[in-house]
Each structure stands twice: as C-alpha cells, then as structure tokens.
Amino acid sequence: MTLSKAEMARLVARDIPDGSYVNLGIGQPTTVAAYLAPEREIVLHTENGMLGMGPPPADPAEQDPDLINAGKQPVTELPGAAYFHHADSFAMMRGGHLDVCVLGAFQVSAHGDLANWHTGEPGAIPAVGGAMDLAIGAKQVFVMMTLFARDGTPKLVPACTYPLTGLACVSRVYTEHAVFHLGPDGVRVAETFGTTVEELRTRLAVPLDAL
C-alpha cells in the first residue's frame, strides 16, 4: 500500500531527531507538527520571527492577528518561546543553527538539487519567500512530495527542469511510494511502500541503490 499524506507526515516526524530545531514549510510539511510529541522537545521555528511555535488556537476567539506563522495562519506560543526580527530569523538558517527543515517540491534531482518556488510558466508571478534561504541554511533538508506529477512524470529526476531553489541541498525525500536518502554517492532507497526497488528502477530515470 502506498502511504497516505498523514502517514507520510508521521514518517517525517519519526525521523526528526529529538531536541531538534525545525522549520516546517507551508502546505503539507506543516501537518508534520501534529505528530511531534511534546516530550521529544522539538522546537518549531517560523521564519517570520518565532521559536517555540505552538498549534493553531483551539478556540477561534483566541486568534491573535499579531501571532501568525509563515503561512499567515494564527498560531500559539509554547512555554519558552522567543520572538525576533527577520534578519535574526534568517541568520538562524544561514548560520546553520536549524537542524531540519521540511519543504514541498516540484522536483528534486539525484544530486539533491531542489526546485520548489517557481513553475517558470509564462504569466506565472514569481514568489520565493524563504524557500531559498531554508534550502541552503538548514543542516538537513527533508522534502515531502508525491513521487509523480499529475501527468505521471517522475519528480525525482536526473536534473531539474524547473527553476532551481538550491543546489545539492536535499538530504531526504519522502513520497507515498518510498523514502529516499540523497548523498554524494547518489540515491538510496531506505523504505518502500506497496512497491519494490526493482519496480522503482523501471519508473525512475535515476540510478537507485538499496539501503
């Protein structure tokens, strides 16, 4: 069986080391937060200027327009939270202080190149936000994505055709079919779900090693 989105989020949460400082990107990566047990002491960073971000307020009446995440959704502060300005927030990334960030992607190359900010289509309005800073800044970049695009083409590719976000920055790719570890010696399949390494080799144009 392939993994559901919730199962993928649970898997990513499992692989984040206890005590890490973590940034979860907008969209599907945000759902990972629900599977991080408080006793693991994982601290969430949001690039608009906060460490110790908590879940959305249970009661909508407690929403505070001054307390939002990078997706501009209302959140809460946990005990030990800290606020800081944008230059400090991105210094935390660029300075290598964030342990893990989890991002979505249009494509990831076998070398760990990431494309996730712009389709490059004519008429598309480019908007990068913090994606490039996160991609090169966090010690480990995990990507969550479907392995194939809607038209069936693979998103784990020999070389990205979409405009790049960062070079050789992705260390792991979580998909519904498999988890891939990326490194200088190529792509290794760590786990498969409802498929085999052999079958993945026939569907992807990327050399695959089994872990």
Partner: peptide, 26 residues
C-alpha cells in the same frame, strides 16, 4: 529571497557596503 531582503536592509542600517550570501547560488 526573504532572508536576503532582510539582510540587505540590515546591511544598509549597519553601514555594510555589500556582503557575500550563500542564498540563491545556482
């Protein structure tokens, strides 16, 4: 890029003439 935007303004305020940044390479 968001962090570069912040840092370019920080540099202006701090009197830094320019800076080398890893964000966006390639």
């Amino acid at each position: 890029p968001q962090g570069t935007l912040a840092e370019r303004m920080r540099a202006a305020g701090a009197g830094i003439g320019a800076f080398y940044c890893p964000t966006g390479v390639g």
